[in-house]
Amino acid sequence: MEISGMGSNRRLGVLVDTNILLYVYDGVDPFSKVLEFLDFKPRFYIHTVVLNELSTLEGKYARSTKMLSRIRLAREYLRTYGGWWETVDLFQELPPDEALLRTAVELGLVIFTNDIALKKLALKNSIGIIFMSRWGKIIKSVYTI
């Protein structure tokens, strides 16, 4: 089933992957993109593995001004929109992608990601996905009931 604005499940929860948050640097507001696409406000979820991954990336790219700017803007975005999302920490002992997949299944969420491998695994496991084009437009969303 395609996700669309009209007639959609208004209890839809969206689990946001790290790479989506990094688009903020490019002037993309990920939450607004989903709102525009769905015509309603779902509940957004940020997994603790995503927050930890931002910290890991910050250390890994300590010498890259552009990447540090991306990470810092992503963190600022999350602070600014703190009332829009909840933290989840299920399966946090697992690698990030596996934790996201299992959490999505457990809580009945769709995953918002542009990670090709994660998208394939999600669809293989009947987990809904939302993803964007390079220019920040949501181009595809699929989930199964």
Rank of each mutant, 00 (worst) to 15 (best):
E2Q: 05
S4P: 00
S4H: 11
S4C: 08
G5C: 13
M6S: 07
G7P: 07
R11I: 01
R11F: 15
R11D: 15
G13I: 09
V14N: 05
L15S: 05
T18C: 14
T18Q: 05
N19H: 06
V24W: 12
V24N: 01
G27F: 07
D29C: 04
K33G: 03
K33Y: 01
V34I: 13
Y45L: 14
I46G: 05
I46Q: 05
H47F: 11
H47R: 04
T48R: 15
V49P: 10
L51D: 04
L54T: 06
L54R: 06
L54I: 08
L54M: 12
T56V: 14
L57R: 14
L57E: 05
E58H: 10
G59I: 01
Y61A: 07
Y61I: 02
R63P: 01
T65R: 15
T65C: 02
M67E: 14
S69H: 08
S69R: 11
I71G: 04
R72G: 01
L73R: 15
A74G: 11
A74Q: 09
A74T: 13
R75V: 01
R75T: 03
E76Y: 05
Y77F: 15
Y77S: 09
L78T: 09
L78E: 02
T80G: 00
G83Y: 11
E86L: 12
F91I: 04
F91R: 03
E93T: 10
P95K: 13
P96S: 08
L101P: 00
R102W: 10
R102N: 10
V105C: 00
V110G: 04
I111R: 04
I111S: 04
F112C: 10
T113V: 05
N114S: 12
I116E: 13
K119P: 01
K120V: 12
K120Q: 12
K120M: 13
L121Y: 15
A122N: 08
L123A: 08
S126L: 12
I127N: 08
G128N: 03
I129N: 06
F131L: 08
M132W: 07
S133R: 11
G136E: 02
G136P: 04
I138F: 01
I139H: 02
I139N: 03
S141R: 06
S141K: 07
V142D: 00
V142F: 13
V142E: 11
